[in-house]
Nucleic acid binder design. Structure first.
Lengths: 349, 349
DNA sequence: CCTTTCTACGTAACCGTTTAACTATTGCGA
DNA sequence: TCGCAATAGTTAAACGGTTACGTAGAAAGG
């Protein structure tokens, strides 16, 4: 009886390169060479080894391989909330591109909890990931020093202080500027700002609001603090947004346009307006942001800003692959253009 | 110069147990023992090793550890679509429970592509995951034989033919039965069935519809084929549902209730009805399923069925942990109770 | 004082792969 | 015929941990 067959009969060891070598009557080196198309071997040996490998259902031991090669061909994707439509879209697109490039992805949901994030990162370093992609949101505390891994931030603020680091995102101030401009272009006179996302996006959100303020000051519109609707940051941004808008209306602060920093927020606003019998798209125009499912399922459909997740993912992955290849990135801050999508809530009817 | 310091200066090797042993003047065995709280060592040695480990920023090499132990403490979570609210909730809850039990999760998005799923599974076996959890949807083709790993299915149909396998889910036929019963209890006479989810859930969906048919036959209600609204299965179940309902109305097939197999479908139905000026909740009552975000953001809020993701996750993880511990599962099919949540679309006003 | 039993380590094998370095055989040109 | 190169392999070390087993020294018991 082969020594390797002993022990717990339940736990039948997986077949290894060693077993194949034995069956084929060659050395493990040759088996390895054949399987990796390296070195030299005869056609006959190749066929034999391949046949046996298939017959035995051989599958390489990843741990052994990455221990030896000290490379895992795995990238960690850190995102605050995969159940967020925008983020999960981004995550999925990044994952697809990485897979096409021969990398596996390790999807981590941090819940925007810095402690959990650090815990994750420690685990990831232990797991020897080859790189890290932060997707969405903000990391408030400086991110834990991340060995010397390449890091890419997609729609994410926060720094790791690592040498090889690239940021990919939209020009958020310009984005809210364009949203505001769109409403004024439709003749709106009093435009409110609604921002009630979860605290996840605080820093980013601050940037976002900037464009609203800049538009007003550039166009000589007096800022009315009563029209800046900012709630405490809870999960249900939608319900909260509806509430804030309701309170604003009930308090008699009239407005004819709403810049909503997020489609969920916009949807809450639209619902609140509808409930009060206000004609959305004519009496009050609303624009959201992200071109997420929420803007499309709404009735009336919500105008929004497409942030171009496809490009964000593509540029991010390109940057990461460049870093992994050891190249210095061409630019450390990549800006992806956005696009205003007008629908019923600004066009009316 | 230490031999281990040679080579590419960029790629500074991570500090290993070997380095610590050298610095502490002990053997690697002792270091390992201290770090794992095994074996015996003096207080002095313990403190010394721990201090050096901390100072050097030691982090264990996961590949080496799992190669030696042939266990990764990692579970694969296979789900058709993480951007689906219901699935991602389930995934997140399962992940949290597993982490509490000391397991990492490897989240895989199969896109319900059997080929991609097989590719994933091969990779997972290579990565030596300790177990697999299928979350949501259906695997049409028999799932690839999955070594001898424990497998748990949560809200998922399809078999791996593996020895240690447990199913956790709701009683779907009963669920649609209860949905139908709810509408009839409100006095509805003609109840339609709308099912337009993506093909992801086909088998499961077939089960789902069963309760609708059973209710009708048990209560002597004649089945009107015109009220069974089934679209070709596309992604945008919402738009499609709205379209189907619209066509049905335009064709003059009246109804006063809709059983929608999914909240997205229900939302599409509600939107279509509203657009035609039909009073949802009084003229026509609608009930969805999953208690997802879609039912809550709708205005009017949509009645739905809570499937209890908390329990689904909990029972699933419990079963998996039992299997991992080598125990035979108490039951191979666990049924989690559901609960009808009535909101405005069945209660009116 | 001798034997036994602990305590506190050290030694070395092992997990499965890759790969540098080496060997043996063959072919071929000069 | 000799030398050289190419082909087809083999051997053994290395990756970074864990752990069975060995052992030196101290304490304890008779």
């Amino acid at each position: 009886m082969d020594a390797r067959d002993e022990g717990n009969p339940m736990a039948k060891r997986a077949v290894s390169i060693y077993d194949i070598a034995k069956l084929a009557g060659v050395s493990t080196a040759t088996v390895s060479n054949v399987l990796n198309k390296k070195g030299s071997y005869s056609q006959k040996t190749r066929d034999l080894v391949l046949r046996i490998a298939r017959e035995q259902g051989y599958v390489a031991n990843f741990a052994a391989k990455s221990l030896r090669e000290s490379s895992t061909k795995t990238i960690a994707l850190l995102t605050p909330d995969v159940s967020n439509d925008f983020f999960s879209t981004l995550v999925l697109k990044v994952e697809r591109l990485l897979r096409a490039a021969g990398y596996s992805s390790y999807i981590c949901n941090t819940g925007n909890d810095n402690e959990r994030e650090d815990e994750y990162v420690r685990g990831l370093i232990s797991k020897q990931v080859d790189g890290i992609v932060y997707i969405g949101g903000t990391t408030h505390a400086p991110v834990q020093a991340v060995a010397d891994l390449p890091v890419v931030h997609i729609d994410h603020t926060g720094t790791t202080g690592v040498a090889r680091e690239v940021y990919v995102g939209n020009d958020m101030p310009q984005l809210s500027y364009d949203m505001t401009a769109t409403l004024f272009a439709h003749g709106c006179k009093r435009v409110a700002l609604a921002s009630v996302s979860a605290s996840l996006y605080r820093t980013e959100e601050h940037d976002q609001a900037a464009g609203y303020y800049r538009y007003l000051s550039e166009h000589g519109v007096r800022l009315d603090k009563n029209l800046v609707l900012e709630g405490p940051h809870r999960q249900t941004s939608l319900v909260e947004a509806a509430q804030l808008v309701g309170e604003c209306l009930d308090a008699g602060y009239g407005f004819d346009g709403v810049v909503a920093l997020g489609d969920r927020v916009a949807l809450g606003v639209v619902n609140a307006l509808k409930e009060r019998g206000i004609a959305v798209g004519t009496d009050v125009r609303v624009i959201g942001m992200d071109d997420s499912i929420y803007s499309r399922i709404s009735s009336p459909a919500i105008s929004t800003v497409r942030r171009n997740t496809g490009q964000l993912a593509k540029k991010g992955v390109e940057a990461l692959l460049a870093l992994l290849a050891g190249n210095k990135p061409v630019q450390t801050h990549v800006v992806v253009p956005h696009e205003v999508i007008e629908r019923a809530t600004t066009l009316g009817a």
